[in-house]
Amino acid sequence: MSFDTEVGDIQLRNPLILASGVLGTTYSTLQRTYEAGLGAVITKSIGPRSRIGNPNPSVFALQEIRSVINSVGLANPGYSIFREDIQILNENKIPTIVSIFGENKEEFLEVLNGLKDLSVLAFELNLSCPNTEKGGTQIGTDPELVKEIVSMLRKETEIPLWVKLTPNVSNILEIADAAIKGGSDALVAINTLKAMVIDIQTKMPVLGFKRGGLSGAAIKPIGIRYVYDLYENFGDKIPIIGVGGIYRGEDIIEYLLAGATAVEIGTSLGVAYPENMIRFFQMKIKKYMKEHQFNSIKEITGGAHR
């Protein structure tokens, strides 16, 4: 039995990847999470210049639905400063995927060119952050723009490009198709769902930015549905990476069965101790593979499409 995973040409020791936005602000949390047993890690989304993000509260838990709402708003130090963290990850041989964003084509290009000389497993294009005024979701909901950006970046590097899709669209297949036509090497689904919390005592939105994005257990069935749909339509063309609400090993299996080649895990690793969670995930996957006589992760992928 093996956990070995291939996402296109990328070899991973297992299909568990740290999702962008959680534990990804510094090389040391990324390294810690990888060493706890992940296949790879993805950095916090990095843009062209330093951003302080949105005012607090910008992240809090919603206990009843085991979820987290956030409006961090792409706070990041900018690629020229974050390079140093990636360099340390390179030196320590941590398989690192860098999430990048821009408000327009030019900014995406600037960030990619500013980092492409480093040892990066893949660039994940964050076309789908709901927490900014411009860019992010706005780009990720326009198929023409998605195609244009992906194909432009495609010409600049041999490093695989993964496109992270937003669920906040009426037709995700249209966007996925545009990403594939632009030359994307994998599709990642899903980013957070648009969400909001209002305090009924003070009658005020709680998030400093008022609106935010929901992650955690509540969004898992939505992620499963999107991965299932994407696999049905594009499963023979491109690997799909499932993300959204993984809290238990069973959730990982579910994503694989829906059609995921690998999964990204964020919220649950951040809320708990990543070391414990990853151990539980691995134990559960092993047990499932044994019970259902799977020898490889690849055999599980798409198993629900019969």
Partner: peptide, 22 residues
């Protein structure tokens, strides 16, 4: 700190990756 419970990692210290909040 943003979240206070370990997710955002803006309070993390190097080189251990420990989050001040948890």
């Amino acid at each position: 700190m943003r979240c206070g419970f370990g997710a955002c990692s803006y309070c993390a210290v190097d080189p251990t990756g420990w989050r001040i909040c948890v």
